[in-house]
Design a protein around this nucleic acid. Structure first.
Length: 402
DNA sequence: TCTGGGGTCCTAGGACCC
DNA sequence: TCTGGGGTCCTAGGACCC
């Protein structure tokens, strides 16, 4: 018999918008942008003009996340647009994580604004889970000025679905005995991991609610969805999920990537390579900060027709040295670039490992040691004097463009 | 002034081996 | 000489999440 678990899901309400609102209020801004028709949006002049977060009023007017600001303005001409501040968001995310860590060591940062807490077996410390959830919610509000939803369930799926019920500033439960009454009436597209494509297929099968999905014969689902997906959907609709809350130490990054929509389409290989160098630097520094090495390097393109393509290559040895990875990036670029006009370009490092397991070749060994040393020195100079304090001679002007 | 960025996971299909 | 088939590894591309 499986032990009954107790999982909390804490979700910041309109995270980017709330965090910006709090920061603005602190600076003396007269209006709380959470209470007007407002959005957080990228810079349209740089072609990054999409909605990243919206206020409840903006939502009511039909503005959706990821749509263009242009389209948002058509829905509501008076909408106020504020730029994102990712440094602020990471700071706030860290604050939240630190605050929540006091309640259990079994905590998973699921995204920048969401955490799972495994509260199983804490009944001696916290007799009433609901009371604790309210305390968490209220304390975050008074301490930090933003609100959260807390969802409580017997697994991660139910906790997450519960935190989504009614917003903002609410606590909800979705225990096993509540699944039929609280989960099943919801539209099937609301179920976690049911996106547009899956929802469309389900609708064609005349399945519109989570309850209908739960009561659909598995044999039928398996006909429409390959392999485990049918199983997974049925289990989710029944509120079944036995995945664990993965605490930080267990939860290693599987890949690191960077990509960028360019202010203008670029079809010049030298220019694109300069951007790639700058991206390689950024992404490998992150890799080194995490004391990780990668074995696979990938490059990705989106051209002016919005067609995407990518290429990847496995290396012989794991590395986190900028120059080694950049050499591979250039190879991939020369191999795969279709000489088209590029709108968005990026790099992805995957097959990450913590310890370098080298397939040592006699000759590589010393070179490698030197590279590591050089890299350390370069990083420390950049930490001290800023990212542009030192660079390769041939890319002296690479940051001018960016 | 149309259409972001950082992730995870899955699958089809090709290459290669026996 | 008439083209099987299982297993493994790898890449490209896509769905989904926030």
């Amino acid at each position: 018999m499986e032990k009954k678990r107790l999982i909390f899901h804490v979700d910041v309400n309109n995270a980017f918008l709330s965090w910006t609102a709090v920061a603005l209020l602190k600076k003396g801004y007269a209006i709380d942008i959470r209470n007007i028709c407002s959005i957080i949006g990228g810079d349209e002049n740089l072609r990054k003009g999409v909605v990243l977060a919206k206020s409840p009023i903006a939502k009511k007017l039909g503005i959706k996340t990821a749509e263009t600001i242009y389209s948002a303005r058509r829905k509501s001409p008076q909408v106020k647009v504020f730029p994102p501040d990712y440094n602020l968001y990471h700071e706030q995310s860290d604050l939240l994580y630190k605050y929540l860590s006091q309640f259990t060591p079994k905590i998973e940062r699921y995204s920048i604004d969401e955490c799972f807490l495994d509260m199983t077996g804490t009944s001696l410390l916290y007799a009433d889970p609901l009371k604790l959830a309210y305390k968490i919610k209220d304390e975050i509000k008074t301490k930090y000025g933003f609100t959260v939803n807390v969802g409580i369930g017997n697994n991660k799926l139910c906790a997450k679905m519960a935190s989504d019920f009614e917003k903002p500033d609410k606590v909800h439960t979705l225990f096993a005995e509540e699944i039929e009454s609280k989960l099943w009436p919801l539209p099937v597209g609301d179920l976690f991991m049911v996106g547009n494509q899956t929802a469309t297929i389900l609708h064609k099968m005349n399945i519109y609610t989570i309850g209908q999905l739960a009561n659909t014969d598995l044999v039928i689902l398996k006909k429409y969805f390959k392999n485990q997906l049918g199983d997974f959907l049925k289990r989710s609709a029944l509120g079944i999920d036995d995945s664990e809350v993965e605490s930080e130490s267990k939860n290693q990054n599987k890949c690191i990537s960077i990509s960028e929509t360019l202010p203008k389409d670029i079809a010049d290989s030298e220019e694109l390579k300069k951007i790639l160098y700058y991206q390689t630097e950024k992404v490998t520094r992150k890799l080194r900060r995490q004391k990780q090495y990668c074995l696979t390097v990938a490059i990705s393109f989106k051209n002016s027709n919005f067609e995407k393509y990518s290429h990847q290559q496995k290396l012989y040895n794991q590395t986190n040295v900028t120059e080694e990875i950049y050499r591979e990036v250039v190879k991939l670029f020369d191999h795969s670039w279709r000489h088209d006009s590029i709108r968005n370009i990026g790099i992805r490092l995957s097959d990450l490992v913590q310890i370098k397991e080298q397939q040592l070749s006699l000759f590589d060994k010393d070179v490698d040691k030197n590279n590591d040393k050089i890299q350390e020195v370069v990083d420390s100079i950049k930490d001290k004097y800023g990212p542009n304090s030192i660079y390769l001679g041939n890319f002296k002007n690479s940051t001018d463009k960016l």
